[in-house]
Amino acid sequence: MAKIKVVQYINQFFAQIGGEEMADYKPELRQGPVGPGLAFNAAFGEDAEIVATVICGDSYYNENLDEAKATVVEMVKSCGADMFIAGPAFNAGRYGVACGSICEEVKNKLGMPVLTGMYVENPGADMYKNSVYIVETKNSAAGMRDAVKKMAPLALKLARGEKIGASAEEGYFPNGIRKNFFEKERGSKRAVDMLLKKLAGKPFTTEYPMPDFDRVAPNPAVKDITKATIALVTSGGIVPKGNPDHIEASSASKYGKYDIEGVMDLTADTYETAHGGYDPVYANADADRVLPVDVLREFEKEGKIGKLFRYFYTTVGNGTSVKNAKGFAAEYAIELKNAGVDAVILTST
């Protein structure tokens, strides 16, 4: 049997073109495997091979969604392949969203089987797990070997049109599709076993996880914005020059609270970004591009708002765990509330 032909989508980083400064890289088609494709080829052995690789910058894809999708689909089409793999993206947010989005597009437009992989907290996982197969990976590229081990066999099955097992067996995120099968033991026994484990404080696996709908209802609108105290918060990592609290460039373990009393404008000499997940050139040159203190001061003067709150809160939203981010905000939200802040403007990069 002829080898299955696979096309892989990767970002500028995994193609070793560059980091954030190259995140605007436009889609490029290369023959053969690039970067992670080598590990996939090794895992495929004689069964399949990566015939071509599409490389695209993460920012380019997300900022030019329609154009990027159309270009990449044309590139994939021109390869005449049997299977499409994107990523794995691990915990890289924009990359994960791009992988999920392009898989969905290739599947819908070209009718090809598709597969991607990412970490459970990657926003792309929640967004696309019901439309395409997404293998659960670790949160960083150190988990590449593990990801390839799970993705390669599933890719072969998909390409051959074989029956795909349940999510727990194949390692993909549950996609809402139920498979009927016979358990070895009857329900009453399984339930009692589970209860005994629970009583004994031992780990057990539920057969029916409750959906996690963490939604907070919107608060009522601000009655009179011209009298309101407004606070600025950002995940874009804006800090006083020198990053006095050493907020980490990625996987932040803390947030900063900084006094902007009397500060009318953020300048290159006074503020910068600590964020390691986007090209910092523009924010370092003028941090108002991320944390718009200058215009809010003008609004204050013009009476468009009551006042800008004396402190801003900041952290780096780059591979930072949901648990940490939630913890930071739960803490400073109470401070904001107690300080009588009426509304918050939160900016993200």
Binding site: A217, S235, A329, A333, I345
Partner: peptide, 15 residues
């Protein structure tokens, strides 16, 4: 973070 701010009762806009 937006949800935690919303949760304490402050309206928040995400840019």
């Amino acid at each position: 973070m937006v949800k935690e701010i919303e949760r304490v009762g402050i309206p928040v806009v995400h840019i």
